[in-house]
Design a protein around this nucleic acid. Structure first.
Lengths: 241, 241
DNA sequence: CGACAAGTTGATGTTACTCAAAAGTGGTGG
DNA sequence: CCACCACTTTTGAGTAACATCAACTTGTCG
């Protein structure tokens, strides 16, 4: 964890918050200022540990992180992802201890999330929408793990990731970064890496999805969506309130 | 949904909030007042529908409700439970639309959750802790569905429910109400009701758990806890902040 | 008592896991 | 440039856990 004064504007980092609520010039300035003090984490490093003091509210500028739970016998479950533009700990600030371990899956850059001054500014609204989205991703993950086949889990998960990365403007022509190993994917979807491998091959052969060298490409998104009863989280509806 | 002026003090309804934070006399009076306007729901009725206007923040006085997601082909996944003393919609108020359907599993009584006047009163603290607990139950549910065997899922789930009902003082001598059908349990744990039945029988034969006529009784709680790496959610730690 | 939901049982099928090894990939230093 | 290493992906064969289907039994409540 080291501070870095160089202000490289991370692609997609604030695009997401701006997509969730109308941000004022002041809001954007506060974000720019916050982005000057960054913390970086190497891949595979823990960012916060379960039951250790929680992080101050932060924004992911670059990279993928995840919440993860490990079992005493080595089993591992990835509980959720933290993607560029998303918030860490924006929700329950005031809670002293982290409820889950958070680790970096790739090199990760964070910056502090500027405090929302009043209930009605744009940033506060963006944080609230972000938090509601985070909750809906958890529910979706539960439904996926509880009631979908391996094939459906993969399809549904990829569609969710595309939707989330699109908010940060990281999706171009249905292609987007997907830096996970098949083992991490297995720990996400409640499968073994062997089975993930076979299922991915099947999707490839069927011409629906390509995942190669850290990039995912959806060939037939409509087909995938039909298969899993795809329902986007509709940030617009959340914003309306 | 009908209002009922009779103030029958529901057992355990406020015990939980009082267990989560030190409540002042004012807090308790506000709760008593709120408990005068109740809404009741029959078993199997929807309390709120996904994407319909959200409920105002409410407290469960009696009965079990759940968040649920249904698939177009009839599959069903229970996403989480709302037990006596727990809050509905305390978290993201200001979000206009409900993110999940909530339905009553038994007859359910709700009352409005009194607004927390300032950030630092006892009620606000209790709501914040309740919300943090709710989040931790979601993470636990994900780990359960993703990485546990049927036997472990049942054991882990029962221990969680005991812990949650204990906060509302509904657990006596390791026995507590468990009104779910085996089919609802299956929809919770991502199994079929047939397999739930067989797994319950196995636990019964092994002398660990009895579930009969709406009551669960843990015979060997320590044994169960060892089996699933049981970690209580430690409301005390959350309160400390 | 009758009817309907819930629980139980048996036989069989399938999805996904396990174990083991081979082949591909990328980074490093000589 | 190549040799080497660790890691990831891929493949095969056998297995276990859980699902499916269908009947039968028990419990509950009018």
């Amino acid at each position: 964890v080291k501070a870095d004064p160089s202000p490289t504007p991370a692609k997609g980092s604030f695009a997401r918050l701006a997509a969730l609520a109308r941000l004022s010039g002041e809001d954007l300035q506060a974000l720019e200022r916050a982005a000057h003090s960054r913390s970086r984490f190497h891949a595979q490093r823990e960012i916060v540990s379960e039951n250790a003091p929680a992080l101050p509210p932060s924004i992911v500028l670059e990279g993928w992180a995840c919440r993860v739970r490990e079992f005493p016998d080595g089993r591992r479950q990835i509980l959720g992802f933290l993607l560029p533009g998303e918030l860490i700990g924006g929700r329950h600030h005031g809670q002293p201890l982290a409820t889950t371990t958070i680790m970096a899956l790739t090199p990760v850059t964070l910056c502090p999330a500027p405090a929302r001054e009043h209930g009605e500014d744009g940033l506060a609204k963006a944080y609230a929408v972000s938090s509601a989205l985070e909750e809906s991703y958890l529910y979706r993950h539960i439904a996926r793990l509880g009631r979908m086949s391996a094939y459906e889990r993969l399809a549904d998960w990829i569609l969710e990731i595309r939707e989330r990365l699109a908010l940060a403007e990281l999706v171009t022509a249905n292609a987007f970064p997907m830096p996970l190993t098949q083992e991490a994917l297995a720990d996400t979807l409640g499968l073994t890496s062997v089975h993930v491998n076979r299922t991915l091959q099947l999707m490839r052969r069927e011409g629906l999805v390509e995942i190669r060298s850290g990039t995912a490409r959806l060939i037939e998104p409509a087909h995938l969506e039909a298969m899993v009863d795809y329902r986007p989280a509709r940030a617009g509806d959340l914003r309306a309130g």
